Simulated scan of single mutants.
Amino acid sequence: MTYRGRFVTSRARYAVGVLVAGLLTMPSVACTGGGPTAADSFTVGLLLPSRVVPRWEKSDRPLIEQQVKRLCPHCSVTYANANDDSTVQRQQMIAMITKGVRVFVLGTTDNRALRSTVQEAHNAGVPVVAYDRLAEGPISGYVSFDGVQVGTLQGRALLKAMHAPPEGGTIVMMNGDPTSPNAAWYKRGALSVLRGEVRIGRSYDTPGWSTDNANANMTAAISALGPGRIDGVLAANDAMAAGVVSALKSAHVRHLPPVTGQDADLDAVRRIVSGEQTMTVYKSFRAEAEAAAAMAVALGRGESLRTIATTTTDSATTHHIPSVLLTPVAVTTANIKQTLVKDGVYTITQICTPQLRAACAKAGLTP
């Protein structure tokens, strides 16, 4: 993938905010007594990839649905979750084309497997906004985060938490699903920091970004390297971090090594507070959902994305895709309150269960 120009979060939010404000202040036919026209009354097809990672159902879906309704009150959203099955997602997408959706927001299960279906949508005149993951084929818009930067943040946090062990130390890399381009970008960013600094004892791909698969991989790594010879684990997301921590505990590792994550899942935030996980990467789901909804509504109305997209992206099949690439943030105990709590992702009460009250007080997480 090629980024054409760097993205600044404040600039992206400003651009999306300007578009949202403009759409909200546009007079609709309904207000003039004639009822909504086709330009102001259409269906957005929302396709998300998985139920394994909590963010899709708990954050992305409701935020996108709310924002589409806010921008286009007479529009509707048809939703489907593929549960990590590319064949199912293809069927869902074709069914929605048949039913007449005007535009797609697609969080793809497999960027290559959906290429022909994206082409079918294009042939039918239905534009596709790639959401969080860059699908192949004639994509009309793309919204995500700088994936290389995500991996860079994880690698830096891991090195810092390892406190320069003798001879650099040995780590295990728990990479993401090999069918996802995001996984490759995360890995590339992490390796840009870790190469030459640590020994990579084992490196695994993790189909489905699955907790169970990560647990099995980590169990194998412990068996191969020894439970006391792993100084850190680069886990690409929080679901896999959960599997890693579980495997370490099952192996009776008394002092857990630093473990990274991503997605700011509530359970992961609690593990960070308790000391079982070192960090996560917070990606503002609200900012991402707002940008995707703005793109979908604009495309559904036949409008250009020029006022929304702040850069362009090249996929394996399509160049110069109008894109919004947001900036991720590393979260540790030091800034949970200033990031996740401040942005309204979680309340302190949600994070600080009775078992974590002492740890929360130590971390400054008090109401």
Rank of each mutant, 00 (worst) to 15 (best):
T87P: 04
M93D: 10
P73C: 10
Q119F: 06
N81E: 03
S116D: 14
V68D: 09
L114M: 13
V103A: 03
Q66W: 07
T108I: 08
H74M: 09
A113F: 08
Q67R: 14
R115I: 00
N83S: 13
G107F: 02
V68K: 09
M96A: 12
C72L: 12
L71N: 09
N83C: 10
D84S: 15
I97E: 11
L114Q: 09
N83W: 01
V68N: 09
T109F: 04
T109K: 04
N111V: 02
S116H: 11
L71S: 04
Q66M: 12
K99E: 09
N81V: 03
V88N: 09
A82C: 05
T108M: 11
V101Y: 00
L114N: 10
V105Y: 00
V88I: 14
R70W: 12
V88P: 05
T117S: 15
Y79F: 14
T78P: 02
T108V: 13
Q67E: 15
H122Y: 15
V105D: 13
R115N: 11
I97A: 11
A113Q: 12
Q67G: 00
V101T: 03
L114D: 08
S76A: 14
F104H: 09
R70P: 05
R102H: 06
A80Q: 11
T108L: 07
L71I: 09
C72P: 01
F104G: 03
D110A: 08
T117W: 08
S76W: 01
T98Q: 15
V105G: 07
H122S: 14
T78L: 15
A82Y: 00
A95V: 04
A121Y: 01
D84R: 07
K99F: 09
Q92F: 01
Q119T: 10
E120I: 04
P73D: 11
H122V: 00
I94M: 14
G100H: 02
M93A: 12
E120S: 13
V77M: 13
N83K: 15
A121Q: 03
S116W: 07
Q89C: 04
V68L: 10
S116E: 13
R90T: 13
N111T: 04
V103T: 05
R112Y: 06
R112H: 12
C75T: 01
L71Q: 12
L106H: 04
N81K: 02
R90Q: 15
T117F: 02
R112I: 04
Q67D: 08
L114Y: 06
A121V: 03
V101R: 01
C75K: 02
L114R: 01
D84I: 08
Q92S: 03
T87Y: 07
D84W: 02
A82L: 08
T78Y: 10
V105F: 05
I94Y: 07
F104L: 08
A95K: 11
H74K: 10
M93C: 05
R70H: 13
K69N: 12
N111F: 12
V105W: 13
T87V: 14
N81S: 02
Y79R: 03
L71M: 13
A80N: 06
A95E: 10
Q91T: 10
M93L: 15
T108H: 07
T117R: 05
N81Y: 00
